[in-house]
Design a protein around this nucleic acid. Structure first.
Lengths: 207, 207
DNA sequence: ACTATGTAACTATCCAGTTAGATACATAGG
DNA sequence: CCTATGTATCTAACTGGATAGTTACATAGT
């Protein structure tokens, strides 16, 4: 409070903090615009840091994108477990997580549509989840007439069905940008229940 | 000394044919790279036409993208009906269509990621489909404990669950780029059956 | 000779990545 | 306690190449 009249305040010299700021800014920018649409200058500006530091800390644009993807993968693997292959719990957790962290969903989507091959880290994450599903199938807790990978892929997509639905479809159901905040929140609660009901129906063992 | 014969073949003067070629080339380019990643020069080259004609026939890059999206929407609305609100038939038709026309799926996805507001044309298409679902629900042919828009959104996503799954997930299940053609085809058949089974389970009326 | 169609070359801008240098901070010598 | 020096961190300005969009011109077909 002494002389803090926000004049030209040079960035405090703290490599770790700056790197984290840049990563967060990059996550937001890539989530909004994708790899090709993202702009290095905008990322630096968002972070309030100098562009040069991006190259010092991350390499180039594509390495920065990879760093963002890796970061998001570890975050989502941590926040959204698949306890005992329970796809319903997984679906609920993932829906809530993506609702609270929209960048996570968008980064994953952009990443999917780049034609880049999967990294070892990604393969490991998915293998772990497919294995958990397969185990639950063997133990009779999930239907077993659908291959584990397919079942997981289907549920994964279902969790995103509303949050990454075409805007026109959301608009049709009264969940457009024009809707009030309360109406939108109610709509999201309603969809959550619907989505979970659908997952239950499609994942439970055939009677 | 004689100039190499017929090296430079001028494009036949046919506005409609050229326009169609450009639209097809643009569709392929946008499907591969998205709006931001697409390159005007590559589109002209793919079409074997002069870049200038793109501007003459379509306006600018963003208008060209819109034209591609419109074209794909009408094509898919025509090729993938929703007869009597039958979501299983719809899912089968859409899976087959996207498998045969991967650009359709990718263009739709890229379009969804852009934050552009929905066009009147899109709204009308989705309204039509949601109405068909709602009618089938009232007549007891679909479960009615899920709102029509949600049910449609879920099924729409399920039809894409494999074709636009993260590459790492496909790889885990032996459907990577390294798989043989026959193995890949078998995998796709298998997923089709699984996906349709899932749609049946989640869409049928609660007994 | 008129017009629709097509071409090549050009321009202005944007943008990823670099260069050269400044400034805070640490550590050590006086 | 003070000054010197080295290093990590940070900055402004620049560069070369790519890219969307344009200008000026050519030619086929009527």
């Amino acid at each position: 409070m002494s002389e803090s009249t926000a004049e030209r305040r040079p960035r405090p010299r703290n490599a770790q903090a700056t790197k984290a700021l840049l990563l967060r800014a990059a996550t937001a920018e890539f989530a909004e615009h994708g790899m090709a649409g993202a702009r290095i200058d905008r990322i630096a500006e968002r972070a309030g840091a100098n562009k040069r530091l991006l190259y010092v800390y991350f390499g180039d644009k594509s390495a920065l994108f990879d760093a963002v993807v890796r970061d998001q993968i570890t975050a989502v693997m941590e926040a959204v477990p698949l306890p005992g292959g329970d796809l319903c719990a997984f679906a609920a957790a993932r829906y809530d997580y993506v609702l609270a962290n929209p960048e996570a969903g968008r980064i994953a989507a952009w990443r999917t549509f780049e034609q880049a091959g999967p990294t070892a880290e990604e393969l490991e994450s998915f293998q772990e989840r497919v294995d958990a599903v397969a185990r639950a199938q063997r133990e009779g807790r999930l239907r077993d007439d659908i291959p584990a990978a397919d079942l997981f892929a289907i549920v994964l997509r279902v969790t995103e069905s509303w949050l990454s639905a075409p805007p026109a479809l959301r608009e049709v159901s009264g969940d457009g940008p024009s809707a009030s905040a309360e109406a939108a929140a109610e709509r999201l609660r309603e969809h959550r229940a619907a989505m979970l009901a659908a997952v239950r129906s499609l994942a439970e063992p055939r009677s």
